[in-house]
Design a protein around this nucleic acid. Structure first.
Length: 520
RNA sequence: CGCGGGGUGGAGCAGCCUGGUAGCUCGCGAGGCUCAUAACCUCGAGGUCGCAGGUUCAAAUCCUGCCCCCGCAACCA
């Protein structure tokens, strides 16, 4: 018990407002972080923004503002959204604004250089003046830029390269077994297989810097005033710079002596699976434990894109259905690791069917009847209830521990459905003469709901607390505290001896009248 | 032959590894109940499991070929 967990998400690129894809990742990581805390682990959870780079620089030029002003403005959008979503992060790192970040990155750079992993080379490529970037040959149509229909110029520029190819076999070993006894697991498995097939194709060295003439908005390369670091050394390093690595070193134990989990999207798997461990190893820093890779979200079955006009603004969803409905949808409908779809119609169906009609109504029908008998809580204890509850918790923990979060979430909605069925079968409202029996029958349902609320806590914290409060459970007020832990006692059937009466029933999920999705 | 994912009742998916009455959720229809947020429960309709071959007593499930959709292909989460 009580392992130390360091969990991170990819840092977001704040060149525009956050969208549903950003939210998927944060919710996934937050559910994990909350679960770790609830099971008694010490957790540090970091998110942030990757604020350098050419796109920010250009976007700022377009708007006639400084890059600094642009990111300062946009970062707030991310922070506000994540706060509203209840993302329980401990640290929000900003690569251009966090004082320690630059120092750690430059220190890491020097270590890579000392390790002989950096080399300055001239790079020759096809440069499109219109796009202001090098075009890979594969992107060209008949040798022309597909956007500008011009033949790109052959341009040579100096770049620092990270000698990733040196580590090809080490990385293959790392992903299949270990690298100097260090292990690094990719979840789900098929992402690991994909990465291994990349190794089979051979690894190339990676460009790690840009001349300031083409990119000014970034961290200076130490000892080379004409160059700025390219994204990888800058962005990936956030995971350790956020802990003061190589500088203050105050919080290094969260890296050195913790289970480290990176939550990322499938597009950046290769960088996290290959470049990052190679960098760390060269710098003499331990490799993380696992990489949790999520898929992408389509919108209404199609790729999310501005031109299609189907980009879903998370705030619209929250405004209409609430934070927990959104967290529920992303957890219940999107299998961890695989692509998912966001659909207003589906969200509405799920909200009505699972949350309003099943969960909310179940709570309400039990509470209303209990209140008619004075709200007395009496939970009959029998062998079967005790053992079934234990099995429920064991199965749930198993799924959560192996990151099958959607399966865990789905088994919760399944449990609520079974509860509704049992309620009809036992029909407590038909027990007219025997008050004691009626109260005890209802007590069973209240106790079941108490357990379900606890399990819902990582997914839908506010809802879980509301249920517990309505039930009148004594720990309800503390459930959202950062240090709240689900104890073995809480997981026991009928363990809450101080639970005497139920609270006031209230509608958990109201009917949403307007069934038309807001236009984007 | 670039890589990967996928094509199963109206929608979304499971099943395929370890062949043998095709399952789940939503939606739809009909009954039941009436404690409850017109919610809940039960039953039902609806599928030649992308196409074509092959292996087998038997294939959604294994093999071969083909068609189609989606994503990725060094910086779009």
């Amino acid at each position: 018990m009580g392992k130390r967990q360091y969990i991170t998400t990819a840092i977001d690129y704040p060149n525009a407002a956050p969208h549903m894809g950003h939210v998927l990742e944060k919710v996934l990581a937050d559910v994990c972080a909350r679960w770790f805390r609830l099971r008694g682990d010490e957790v540090r959870f970091q998110i942030g923004t990757d604020e350098h780079g050419i796109k920010i620089q250009r976007k700022a030029e377009e708007e006639g503002v400084t890059p600094r002003a642009l990111v300062d403005r946009n970062v707030v959008l991310f922070q506000d959204l994540y706060t509203r979503l209840g993302i329980s992060y401990d640290k929000f790192i900003r690569t251009s604004a966090d004082s320690g970040h630059k120092a750690t990155v430059q220190a890491l750079w020097n270590k890579l250089k000392d390790a002989g992993m950096l080399e300055k080379r001239s790079y020759t490529g096809l440069y499109c003046a219109g796009c202001e970037r090098f075009m890979p040959k594969k992107d060209l149509e008949d040798g022309k830029c597909p956007v500008h229909h011009t033949i790109p110029d052959e341009v040579t520029e100096e770049n620092w390269f990270f000698l990733l190819s040196k580590d090809t076999e080490n990385l293959r070993s790392l992903l299949t077994k270990d690298w100097g006894k260090e292990e690094y697991r990719i979840v789900p498995d098929f992402r690991a297989n994909e990465t291994l097939s990349l190794l089979d194709q051979g690894l190339e060295d990676v460009s790690f810097s840009r001349p300031k003439t083409s990119l000014a908005w970034g961290i200076d390369v130490p000892g080379d005033e004409d160059h700025v670091m390219y994204v990888w050394c800058d962005a990936l390093t956030n995971y350790i710079s956020g802990l003061g690595y190589f500088t203050k070193n105050e919080e290094r134990e969260w890296w050195d002596d913790a289970v480290v989990t990176h939550v990322i999207g499938k597009d950046i798997t290769r960088f996290h699976a290959l470049i990052w461990p190679s960098m760390l190893k060269a710098a003499g820093v331990r490799i993380p434990d696992r990489l949790l890779v999520h898929g992408f979200l389509t919108s209404e079955g199609e790729k999310m894109s501005k031109s299609l006009g189907n980009v879903v603004v998370p705030q619209d969803v929250i405004d209409k259905y609430g934070v927990d409905a959104l967290r529920f949808y992303l957890s219940h409908e999107v299998p961890v690791g695989r692509d998912g779809d966001f659909s207003w119609k589906r969200l509405e169906e799920m909200y009505d069917a699972k949350l309003r009609n099943q969960l909310g109504n179940m709570l309400n029908r039990a509470l209303v009847l209990l209140r008619k008998d004075g709200g007395v809580v009496q939970i009959p204890t029998d062998e079967e209830s005790v053992s079934q509850t234990k099995k429920l918790w064991d199965d749930f923990a198993q799924q959560m521990d192996t990151f099958e979060l959607h399966a865990a979430m789905q088994s919760l909605t399944e449990a609520v459905s079974i509860l509704n069925g049992a309620f009809n079968d036992r029909a407590p409202w038909t027990i007219k003469d025997d008050v004691e029996k009626r109260i005890q029958t209802l007590g069973n349902f209240a106790e079941c709901l108490r357990h379900i609320a606890l399990m819902l806590l990582p997914f839908m914290p506010e809802t879980a607390q509301k249920i517990s409060t309505q039930l009148g459970v004594s720990y309800a007020a503390k459930m959202l505290d950062h240090d709240f832990v689900i104890t073995d006692d809480m997981k026991q059937w009928g363990s809450q001896k101080d639970w005497k009466t139920v609270g006031e029933p209230a509608i958990l999920f109201p009917k949403i009248e307007d069934s038309v999705a807001p236009k984007a």
